[in-house]
Nucleic acid binder design. Structure first.
Lengths: 158, 158
DNA sequence: GTTGAAAAGTGCTGCGA
DNA sequence: TCGCAGCACTTTTCAAC
């Protein structure tokens, strides 16, 4: 009876250590990781392939400084929906607004919670009044502007 | 008269295009970017070096799926401080709490706004009651649990 | 599952335009 | 300032343990 090759789909301590190193610096060469963890480069490669197939690794992305690119304002938005059932439709339209970089369905006061990045206050006003408020089902929003980003890191796996 | 080599410290359209590609996939080979933008691989290298020196590029990080690593709960915290002047001291202590992955100083109802990642509800309760509430100056917190992450992306540079 | 080395591909550097 | 070509390094593959 033919079936997919059986694989070890468990995450062991070595996997965790590899991920910890790469989460801090995705450009660390495999050979260096191998030396640090005292295994061969081939092993790192096999483990990474396994983690990718398992979907643990979603990708690698370049981190840029938004301010140096002219994006001076980071803000958070609490969004009230008329009915919770409008969530999927609202999200579909909010996805078109490029300034929204994160969006969550949350418990508590609001139905939707979003993070947006804008050039300046005029840009923020435009996004809020012209783009977001015009999405059907959105009743009201509350805005919180970030004056300082004090922590920005990945979860600690240890 | 000796001086540092004059450099072009402006960001042009080519830089933006390079960043756009790498922000989506940091592992894209330079040769492939060069082919796409119809310049040489060396040019990509020079531009990247310039962007790094300018501090536009902060690094590259591996994106992982927290749920597949046993972190099932993402929550947001609005934190009230007794006095705004306690911000720096509070942040210093909150940095020690590994479950806090993002932290902002915000306008609006709260002084501090944080994002935390936990294994389960018991873990969340422990972090809230035992770690966060014991930081001096923290008066009260409001918790919003994320039931779904619908958008998670980088700013669009175009 | 891991190793070690060979093969393929990428990143880096200097010269020339 | 940009492009080309050679060298150094990394990733990838694979047979053997």
């Amino acid at each position: 009876m033919p079936h997919k090759k059986a694989q070890n789909l468990e995450i062991d301590n070595l996997d965790i250590q590899i991920l910890s190193i790469l989460m801090n610096n995705a450009t660390t060469p495999y050979t260096e990781i191998a030396k640090e963890l005292i295994v061969s480069g081939g092993t790192i490669h096999v483990r990474m392939k396994k983690l990718e197939e398992m979907g643990v690794i979603k990708g690698a992305s370049l981190e840029v400084d938004p301010q140096k690119l002219g994006f001076d304002i980071t803000a958070f938005l609490g969004i009230y929906l008329e009915k919770g059932s409008q969530y999927n439709d609202a999200v579909r339209q909010l996805k078109e607004i490029k300034e929204i970089v994160e969006l969550y369905y949350t418990t508590g006061s609001w139905s939707i919670f979003a993070k947006i990045v804008c050039h300046d206050t005029a840009h923020l006003r435009e996004v809020l009044n012209e783009h977001i408020q015009s999405v059907p089902g959105i009743q009201r929003t509350e805005t919180f502007i970030s004056l300082e980003e004090s922590i920005k890191r990945q979860i600690s796996l240890e």
